[in-house]
């Protein structure tokens, strides 16, 4: 999907923040808790990491940005847990109000609706029987596609040509795994794109590599 998470090359975010020495892992206590609860919510809901990332990219602008990275973890956990009916919509806010002394009515606990999903193995790496469709050094093009669901092909690379630099271990396809419709493991290629191909003749000279699934790529005829 062409959501807020797909930030590569977009403008309007202001200057980068220089690194700060001695920055704590979690600046505030809740951030560590939100991270851990987000992590465990995947297991509680019976989801997978691709589905969790897709939940994050479906957050609205405020939920995605306002409380930073760990705010995203918290809000993604909420989305995962309400969509799998572990929690009712509004349950977290109602409990939060009660924690600060209000008398909010909490919604009843729903009947869980975990997806009919089980991974074929741990992690995301898989064995694929078919040989790779593309070779190291081969010119390929990232497809000009804009799927409504999850994908790991960023907008800025779509339609552009690059060269296969490395063939990486085959892995579960996030585009289908995120929607619980199959792992569809594929070969993964590190593809090198020239900056002028991506951003035009006036771009700084550099290259970008992306790790792209086989179905994201097409031969250049």
């Amino acid at each position: 999907m062409d959501g807020i998470a797909d930030m590569g090359g977009t403008e309007g975010w202001g200057p980068v923040r220089p690194p700060r020495a001695g920055e704590p892992v979690f600046e505030e206590r809740w951030q560590g808790r939100a991270f851990a609860l987000g992590f465990y919510s995947i297991r509680v809901a019976g989801w997978n990491v691709d589905a969790f990332r897709h939940a994050t990219e479906r957050l609205d602008r405020s939920a995605y940005l306002d409380d930073g990275y760990y705010g995203r973890w918290l809000n993604s956990a909420e989305l995962v847990l309400t969509e799998s009916a572990i929690l009712a919509p509004g349950a977290i806010d109602a409990r939060a109000r009660n924690l600060r002394g209000e008398h909010a009515e909490e919604p009843p606990v729903p009947e869980p609706a975990r997806p009919a999903y089980a991974p074929a193995a741990e992690g995301s790496l898989r064995t694929v029987d078919t040989p790779p469709a593309f070779a190291v050094g081969e010119q390929v093009r990232a497809k000009d596609m804009s799927p409504p669901g999850h994908t790991r092909l960023p907008r800025y690379a779509r339609g552009h040509a690059g060269v296969v630099e490395l063939i990486q271990p085959a892995a579960v396809l996030p585009d289908t795994n995120a929607h619980f419709v199959g792992e569809n493991p594929q070969h993964v290629y590190s593809v090198r794109f020239d900056s002028r191909e991506l951003w035009g003749a006036a771009a700084e000279p550099f290259a970008v590599t992306l790790d792209l699934f086989e179905s994201y790529l097409e031969k250049i005829s």
């Binding site: 851990a36 609860l37 465990y40 939060a96």
Partner: peptide, 30 residues
């Protein structure tokens, strides 16, 4: 707007009181 700290505390309570998440496991991961 409810603070993320308060909402996180609420989420943790909701999950731990139903035994869905072990608070010790949360501590260990942190």
């Amino acid at each position: 707007r409810l603070s993320p700290a308060l909402r996180t505390e609420a989420l943790e309570e909701l999950l731990t009181e139903r035994g869905l998440v072990d608070p010790d496991a949360v501590d260990r991961l942190i």
